[in-house]
Structure formats: structure tokens, C-alpha cells
Write a protein that binds this DNA or RNA. Structure first.
Lengths: 285, 285
DNA sequence: AGATACCATCGATAAAAGCGATAGATCATG
DNA sequence: CATGATCTATCGCTTTTATCGATGGTATCT
């Protein structure tokens, strides 16, 4: 069972083609390098270097095993790097809970930036809306959430408005009766089925609004609207990107409206440095 | 600098969720496991396990580093596996020299079989014809070659006929004057430009046959023939696969003809076990 | 309460990793 | 051809480290 140090010595000697050079670079004595490689050859049962020349040259087997040894070292290097990050307080993974109100193109740019800055940290994205999302944050399952601004937040949750607001509008299928009208009043909406967001959490039992249908994500709501089952309030970007051809906005007064997206986190379980970076990156300029 | 053994102990303990269990499986004392993990935590600067419960449970950092540690171990496992293969006489890489006379679909099947049987061994394919190919074998650059049967082989080279022969025929471009004839005699070919194989090696200076053009591979010859520059003797499979729409065979008596493909290797530098397997696989049933 | 199984800690011992010194080998140079 | 420089292999010696058994504290189950 070869030790990591022996592999490092082997690689250094192979790369520089000299035991003495490797000893100098690794700040070890030449005898250590020599003995270490000799032991490694015994352990592996293969001659790594051809020592007939003045300087040792890799054998064919040595060349082949060099690649494997380097893989071991790079894997170990990643381990140490990750440990160093964790030791200095960085979280091993960051879970963010997303509402569909947040545009994915902005999110992708953000993810790319995050990956460049924190390549070691796992990033997990969860999809949830409203109370479900807040529950993810409260339970610690996610550290950061992006939600449409709520009328009130549970205690222990902190929030800050994200930099850019999001546009919402009311849509119906092109085949829906409302789609033909050139003028629609808000009161008329009650005559048709509403498609509303629901949540798995039902701590605050919502007043059941007539014969409405509901789903836990805007994407499912949009698919219901595309089916012609009713009208729904949806993020404009979602419709423009995935449902433009089969949906139509309603000409309501005051719509589309701009919705503030809040960044939410738990005060008890605050996000780590990477989460803080992501949060300030969202709320800042 | 964590040792491999420490990582193995860590992984074993993490997987089974118990230090004692890991000690039993690794045939070490419980104190060794305990101390080893404690040292690992000191080295990495991170708490790996939460010891408040009866059984230790991984911390978040521990979960994250567990994945890294497993990567180190699998890399080391590959290293040991490769070394074991080399120690028992297997070559680190096998270079085979191919003539275009050998059908690639059979070759791909063979490569798949080789990969399944010898996943550790690098397989290198070189393209060469005739004297060039034999030179690759003689020099030791390649260990195995597939060539159209030669009238004579250099001393020191052994050969055996491959199981399946290969068909060759004479082709011209559809725009070539010969393409219109319903009957062609061999002697008439001399009236038109021949496209012949040439080799980089010019040890045996071939008699320059009139105003012929030449190239070192059948693929290049075929492209010349497609350009309408003359007639060429080509492997049937090559034309059928890549040049069927622009080339046409000549109705010559005795053609197409079957050519034996020989497997060639050097008697001085015989191929290793994997090469022998490949060779017998080719010549056998 | 008792039995059991778990983890942490403490010396003691054996294995190894490391170093300096030395000797043999190879290459460049006068 | 002789010489100096530089390389690798090997030999003791010291120091570090890994491993063990024994012991004690603690949680879990009967």
C-alpha cells in the first residue's frame, strides 16, 4: 500500500527526470527519494525507472502508472482544497429555494458566477412557492429563498428586496371565452374558474375561492391555463418563454403589475459566506 | 497530510456509521480507528463526525469530504489494479498498425471486446500500408499489424492469416472515360493514369509505372479516384461505405478478388499477453 | 439495575520515514 | 587519460508515527 508521499515523490521525480531534483523541490534528502521510489517499486511490483543511463528514465509501465499516480494526487488535492474551504467557515453546500417568479436567465448568469467563485461548493436549487418556500427556509432545508413579496413573514425570517422586480400578468388560453373580449373588468373574472397557487403547507387555511383549481408551482398553473381550464396570474417571463403561442394576456386595468422579489433567509441558521455573497449579489446593484 | 489508510478508515466508518464496525471490517483495533479519525479531523481542520449521539453521524462537511475521499480511494484503486496487471506481465499499451484493407466494423467489435477484457490497457491505432506498416512493426512502434498479404516479409517478422479475407476491386469516377465502357481489358488500363499506394519508406524503390499518381493510404487514393484522376484498386468496403455514389467498379475479368489479410508481429519484440489475445482472436475462429 | 455496545484516552511497542555520510557510476572537460 | 562534478544506491542512526491492549465514561435496551 503506497503512501501519498511516495506517489508525490514518484511524480516529482518522473516529471523532472531526476531523483536529486525531486529531493530539492520537495525539501527532502536524496536518500529519501531514492529509498521511497525503491519501496514504491517493491509495493507495486513493477520497475518504474530504467536506471541504466545517468539519469533515470521512466519505463513503459512507469509512464502508464504516472498517469494513475497523478490522478490520485489531484483527487487528494481537491480533498485538501475542499477541507481548507470548510475549515475557514465555508458551507459545504448551499441550497436555494426558488419561486418561478425569478427569471431563469438571470439565475443562470448568477450560477455561472457562483461556480467560478466557489467551485467546491455544491449548489442545490429547489422549486417552491410562498408558504412552501418559507417552510424550506425555516426548517433549514434551504438557506436562501427567492419569493414574491409576502404580506407578512414568519418570525425568525429575514428578508431583503432583490434588485430587479418581476412582472406578473393575468393570462387565459386563446380558446377561453375571456380571450375574445376587448375589454375585461376585474369583477368579471369571478364568473370563470381561477387557477391559483396552493402550497403543501396548509398552516393558514386559505379561504376557498369558489370553484378554483390550484397547483403548487407557476409552471403547473401555466399548463392548466394552456388547457383552457381558467385564468391565472403568471410571471410574464414564464409565458413569454414557454407558453406564448397558446396563451393570451387579459386587458385588465392596472396589469401587468410589477412584483418585488424578496431574498429570504433564516436568522437562526444564517447562510455561510457563500450564501452571504449570493444574497448581497442579489440585493446589491 | 492525511494518509491513504486514514482516508480508508474514514470512508469505512462513514459508510457503516460506526467506528467499531469499521475497525472490525478493516481488521484494526477500535482505538486505531478512533485515533485515526481524530487525527484526520485535525489535519483537515474540520469536524467530520457529530459525536453527540450514540453512533457518530457525519457532519455536513463530513458528507462533502466523504465524496472527495472516495475519489482518492478509487483513483488509488485504479493505480493498484494497473500495477497488478503490469506486474503480472501485461503491457501498459498496445499499438496496432492498420491497413485500410481491414474492415472497421469488425475492428470496432474487436475494440469493444478488448475494452471489456483489458480496460486498463491503452489501445493505439496507427494507419499505414505495406512497407510503412511493416516498418512500424520492425521498429517496435507498433506490436501488431494488419496488412494485405505481402509477397515476402522482412526477417524477424512473423505473420498469420487473419480469419476473414477482404475484397478488393478496381474503381474509377463515374465521370472517368473508362466508366462508360461495358467491357474493359486489363491492358487498356495502361492507357489511363493509375493511382497506386506509395510508402514513406522507400527502401525498395518501386519501378515507376508510367505517369501514375500515388498516396500512402487507401483513403487518399479513393479521394483521388473520386476526383477523376485515374483508376485505383481499392478495398470494396471502403468504397461502399464512403464513396459509393461517385465511384464505379470496372468490369474486369477476375475482379473483384479476395485478398488475405495477415496479422504481423515482431519475433524479437513479441506482443504481451493482451497482444497475443488480440492476435489469436483475429486468426482463430 | 444490569448488561451490552459504543467511543475516547493512555502508555507501550513495533514499524517506518527521515537524515547524513559514504561509495560506486557516469558525464563533461582539460 | 585524469579529474571534478553530479547522479544514484546503500548503510546506520534517530525520530516520528501507527497500532495495540487496557481502562473508563456514556448511551441504549432488556
Amino acid at each position: 500500500m503506497p503512501s501519498i508521499e511516495a506517489l508525490r515523490i514518484f511524480v516529482e521525480a518522473a516529471v523532472h527526470g531526476s531523483f536529486s531534483e525531486a529531493a530539492r523541490r520537495l525539501h527532502k534528502s536524496q536518500s529519501t527519494v531514492s529509498a521511497s521510489i525503491a519501496n514504491l517499486e517493491i509495493d507495486l511490483g513493477v520497475a518504474l525507472f530504467d536506471r541504466h543511463a545517468r539519469l533515470p528514465v521512466l519505463t513503459g509501465a512507469g509512464q502508464h502508472l504516472l498517469a494513475n499516480a497523478e490522478q490520485v494526487l489531484t483527487a487528494q488535492d481537491r480533498l485538501l482544497r475542499a477541507a481548507a474551504g470548510l475549515a475557514s467557515g465555508y458551507e459545504p453546500r448551499l441550497s436555494i429555494a426558488l419561486s418561478d417568479t425569478y427569471q431563469p436567465d438571470r439565475l443562470e448568469a448568477l450560477q455561472a458566477e457562483f461556480d467560478a467563485r466557489y467551485p467546491e461548493i455544491e449548489l442545490e436549487c429547489l422549486i417552491a412557492e410562498c408558504a412552501d418556500l418559507l417552510a424550506l427556509i425555516e426548517s433549514g432545508r434551504a438557506q436562501l429563498g427567492f419569493v414574491e413579496r409576502q404580506p407578512d413573514y414568519p418570525p425568525g425570517l429575514a428578508y431583503a428586496p432583490a434588485a430587479e422586480p418581476s412582472a406578473m400578468d393575468v393570462y387565459v388560453s386563446r380558446r377561453h371565452p375571456l380571450a375574445q373580449r376587448s375589454h375585461v373588468e376585474l369583477a368579471q373574472l369571478d364568473d370563470y374558474r381561477a387557477l391559483r397557487l396552493t402550497t403543501v403547507q396548509q398552516q393558514t387555511p386559505q379561504r376557498p375561492r369558489g370553484h378554483s383549481w390550484s397547483a403548487p408551482s407557476y409552471l403547473m398553473l401555466m399548463e392548466m391555463a394552456q388547457g383552457g381550464f381558467g385564468w391565472a396570474e403568471l410571471p410574464c417571463w414564464l409565458v413569454e418563454r414557454y407558453g406564448a403561442e397558446s396563451l393570451q394576456r387579459l386587458p385588465l386595468a392596472g396589469w401587468p403589475r410589477l412584483v418585488t422579489v424578496d431574498v429570504v433567509w433564516s436568522r437562526d441558521r444564517p447562510p455561510g459566506p457563500a450564501g452571504v455573497w449570493l444574497q448581497t449579489r442579489m440585493t446589491g446593484p
